[in-house]
């Protein structure tokens, strides 16, 4: 079959557009890696392709004041928040997806509303609560405040997942005399694992990236999470921004996320579409 010229032009235009999409998506991350591998004053020469391969910036970051500590803080905070949210969400989602009761639709919309909250609107009240509980400047302040977006999100996504599980399985279990608790733990949980992994991952990314609460509820460098540490990373003097180490730190915290996202691509896309959430 011979292609006409018009077809050929269409085909070229289409692929040109595809190439533009890919280049624009990847370039900033590529450039950050390229910059992070430059040492000293090489950073001030603009290159489009890698020329230096120095790990000096990475060494600076890893041995620097508190960066490793911040990474540990972030992992602990995000991990605890996600486990807590999943634990509360599984049972709640069962009730929301499987049991008919008055006010269910209203409750669902309210939960969605909470996840869409402008976080600044609760900042003053949460600040008071955090101070009152004596957890200011500790990871617990973040675990508490992150629940405001991880919990509604996990409930919402798990509810949509559970709705789609076949009703017959549950009916069979009910006939066998299983209580709702048994249905959740013995019947639904094995089916829900993929959904739990996806939801947990998305909630983890959300907690890992959070900035406003982490910035407001911590004061000392040792308590900071990664986004705050990167945002406030400063050089020897006020004027001098340490771009090399900032790019190295950025690459360190982004590579695991990008890897996870690429591995769980399909599941993440499904979870995103169900939850409609932005990272």
């Amino acid at each position: 079959m011979k292609r006409s010229i018009a077809d050929w032009i269409k085909w070229t235009a289409f692929y040109a557009f595809v190439v533009v999409i890919v280049v624009i998506s990847i370039f900033p991350f590529y450039y950050a890696i390229l910059t992070s591998l430059k040492s000293g004053t090489a950073i001030f020469r603009i290159n489009y392709f890698p020329v230096d391969f120095s790990f000096q910036n990475y060494a600076t970051v890893m041995t620097g004041r508190n960066f490793v500590r911040s990474v540990i803080n972030s992992v602990l905070v995000a991990g605890t928040t996600v486990l807590l949210a999943l634990f509360l969400a599984v049972t709640a989602s069962y009730a929301l997806s499987r049991v008919r009761f008055r006010g269910r639709a209203l409750l669902l919309v309210t939960i969605l509303g909470v996840s869409m909250f402008p976080q600044i609107a609760v900042l003053a009240g949460l600040f008071e609560l955090v101070r009152f509980l004596g957890i200011y400047n500790t990871p617990w302040a973040m675990v508490l405040s992150y629940t405001i977006f991880t919990l509604p999100f996990t409930v919402w996504v798990l509810t949509t997942f559970m709705r789609d599980l076949p009703i017959e399985i549950e009916e069979a279990a009910i006939i066998d005399g299983a209580t709702p608790w048994v249905i959740i733990t013995k019947v639904f949980m094995p089916l829900l694992w993929p959904a739990l992994v996806t939801t947990g991952l998305l909630a983890f990314i959300g907690a890992w990236n959070e900035f406003l609460f982490a910035l407001t509820f911590t004061i000392s460098e040792t308590q900071r999470t990664v986004p705050v540490a990167i945002a406030l990373l400063s050089g020897a003097s006020e004027q001098e921004i340490p771009w090399g180490p900032i790019m190295a730190a950025s690459v360190i915290v982004t590579v695991p996320l990008v890897a996870l996202v690429l591995i769980f691509q399909r599941k993440i896309v499904a979870g995103l579409t169900a939850g409609g959430v932005k990272g």
């Binding site: 790019m247 915290v253 996320l257």
Partner: peptide
Amino acid sequence: LVRAAILIPWAIPTIVSAKMWAWMLNDQF
């Protein structure tokens, strides 16, 4: 491949993308 590529901007933390772009948008360098 394209779908994987467009997931990258989404996966990068906002603070990190702000810093990356701040460097790319730097007035001198």
